[in-house]
């Protein structure tokens, strides 16, 4: 479903992403891990079309991100680090705009809107201005926006940041539920979250993939945390 092929991103002389390749099968939940500054966000931004890669490419559902960006964008939902919400819109108006801009067919717009609001428990705040909502609510509005077109591929950059424990649990179960017909890439620093909901994990460090394995394989002999710490305490220049 997702095939990332030797992605490289340089910012001037600084290489944020040196060489990243991985694949995600349909229905899989991939945990995308790495220390701060490893290049997780940059990689996700390249896959979703926010940033053009310096070299390399990726294909989503058979469409190349460079050759067919519009087809790719129809198939992805992306929740960036900062939820891309307009503070001067109400929750409902914002989500309505998202359904329209994502080209959800007219007949499905209402259903999708109601569905996304229900999934992210936003019904109570639907008429409030996003700017007046707490961080957790904004995060949920962003998440609702990401899933609202029921994309085949869902890319979530730290989706549970700023949520309270109950919401975290809800979002987790929502992600698991969505994985039945969506392919999900999930970046997070909360390792137990990964062991709980992901099938596979890709750990990157210093702009390269250092480990790409099924969670079960990874945690056979030691915990995920131990694996992670061991990998990233090696020299950054892999």
């Amino acid at each position: 479903m997702i095939k990332v092929d030797h992605l490289v991103k340089n910012y001037g002389p600084y290489a944020a992403v040196k060489d990243i390749s991985f694949e995600v099968q349909p229905g899989e939940i991939l945990g995308f891990l790495g220390p701060n500054g490893a290049g997780k966000t940059t990689t996700m931004r390249m896959i979703t079309g926010v940033l053009p890669p310096t070299s390399g490419t990726a294909t989503i559902d058979g469409f190349d991100i460079l050759e067919n960006p519009l087809e790719v964008k129809k198939r992805i939902g992306y929740l960036p680090e900062t939820p891309p919400v307009y503070f001067d819109f109400t929750v409902q108006d914002y989500l309505k705009f998202v359904t329209e801009i994502k080209q959800v067919p007219k007949v499905e717009q209402k259903d999708n809107l109601a569905w996304a609001m229900e999934k992210c428990s936003l019904q109570d705040v639907r008429h409030r201005l996003i700017g007046n909502l707490s961080k957790g609510f904004r995060q949920r509005v962003g998440l609702a926006g990401a899933i609202i077109n029921k994309p085949k591929v869902l890319i979530l950059d730290e989706p549970t940041v700023g949520l309270d424990p109950k919401q975290i649990r809800e979002i987790r179960s929502m992600i698991q539920e969505l994985s039945q017909d969506h392919t999900i890439v999930l970046s997070t620093h909360i390792l137990p979250e990964v062991s709980l909901i992901c099938n596979r994990a890709t750990i990157i460090h210093g702009g390269r993939v250092v480990l790409d394995e099924k969670i079960d394989e990874m945690t056979k002999t030691q915990s995920l945390e131990e694996v992670f710490i061991e990998l990233i305490s090696k020299d950054g220049e892999v």
Binding site: V50, K73, Y78, P84, V98, K102, Q103
Partner: peptide, 9 residues
């Protein structure tokens, strides 16, 4: 918010 627009078709 440009990230929403950039990732929209």
């Amino acid at each position: 918010t440009d990230e929403l627009l950039r990732t929209s078709p």
